[in-house]
């Protein structure tokens, strides 16, 4: 379903990240995404960073479309299609010990899950600026939280996967839920398989229809938009294209890791 909605707020999260909030009376689950469009930009998929009646998308300015989106103000209108996809699988009442791992802009989609059930969280980024904005929320909602930065400007000096390895020397988790750059997810998946910890990961591919018909976002035989974007470790094990190749806008196979 699609609707044209009024932007309630477009907030600067850091130098290159914005959060657009809007009121939208549909049911949405943590991990689901929407297709966002306004005149002057191409429609893009964005994960929801808020899933209550007031919903939000948090995005990094990486090109002309996100630049255009970042220029919008409260009172402006956007077209939202969705919510699409299978979100995170969770039971807010189970006793599972869960670790959330968010990398960069991938932290934001984990916030609704962090609010919905008890969990620890790793906030990872390249620099302090990418991580800092989420620390107050983590303090409020997570049981424990850790930070890492590639440049060492905040918390653990290193990447998310190395921090998870450190944490797991002391902590025991039933499940890890991760969202972030594919390279982070790829090495995290390998590590978690090695130590036999179940996990779910939110994956990304170029999307067109967003709802499972066009086949543009195929990863092996899975439609990232409809069968995912969240996949569990058993599904990911059967997806050799994960972390190694993607599809171009014309559907051609682009191998980025042999």
């Amino acid at each position: 379903m699609s609707e044209i909605l009024m932007i309630k707020d477009c907030k600067k999260i850091n130098s290159n990240t914005r959060r657009i909030t809007f009121e939208w009376d549909v049911e949405a689950k943590p991990g689901q995404f929407v297709m966002v469009w306004a005149p002057g930009m191409e429609e893009i998929p964005l994960s929801l960073s808020g899933v209550k009646h007031e919903k939000s998308v948090t995005f990094k300015i990486i090109g002309p479309d996100t630049e255009k989106l970042a220029q919008l103000n409260s009172g402006d209108r956007i077209q939202i299609r969705g919510p699409y996809g299978r979100g995170y699988t969770y039971d807010q009442n189970d006793k599972k010990n869960i670790l959330l791992v968010g990398g960069g802009i991938g932290i934001a989609p984990l916030i609704p899950l962090m609010k919905a059930r008890s969990a620890d969280i790793v906030l990872a980024g390249r620099t302090a600026e990418e991580v800092e904005p989420y620390i107050p929320t983590a303090k409020n909602f997570a049981m424990k939280h850790w930070e890492s930065t590639d440049d060492g400007s905040l918390g653990f000096h290193g990447n998310a996967v190395d921090l998870v390895k450190e944490i797991m020397k002391d902590e025991r988790y039933d499940e890890v839920v991760a969202c972030g750059p594919e390279i982070m997810l790829y090495f995290l998946h390998q590590y978690l398989n090695k130590v036999h910890v179940e996990h779910q990961m939110s994956l990304e591919r170029h999307m067109k229809c967003g709802c499972g018909v066009c086949g543009a976002c195929m990863m092996d035989d899975k439609r990232v938009c409809k069968d995912g974007p969240v996949f569990n470790n058993y599904e990911i094990d059967l997806m050799p294209e994960f972390g190694t190749s993607k599809r171009g806008i014309d559907g051609s196979l682009i191998v980025f890791r042999k």
Partner: peptide, 19 residues
């Protein structure tokens, strides 16, 4: 090779889709 049209190129409407 043809990249096709830019997004948005798909929309759900009453009882169908326009692409």
């Amino acid at each position: 090779s043809n990249p096709g049209h830019a997004n948005p190129n798909f929309l759900e409407v009453t009882s169908g889709c326009i692409n």
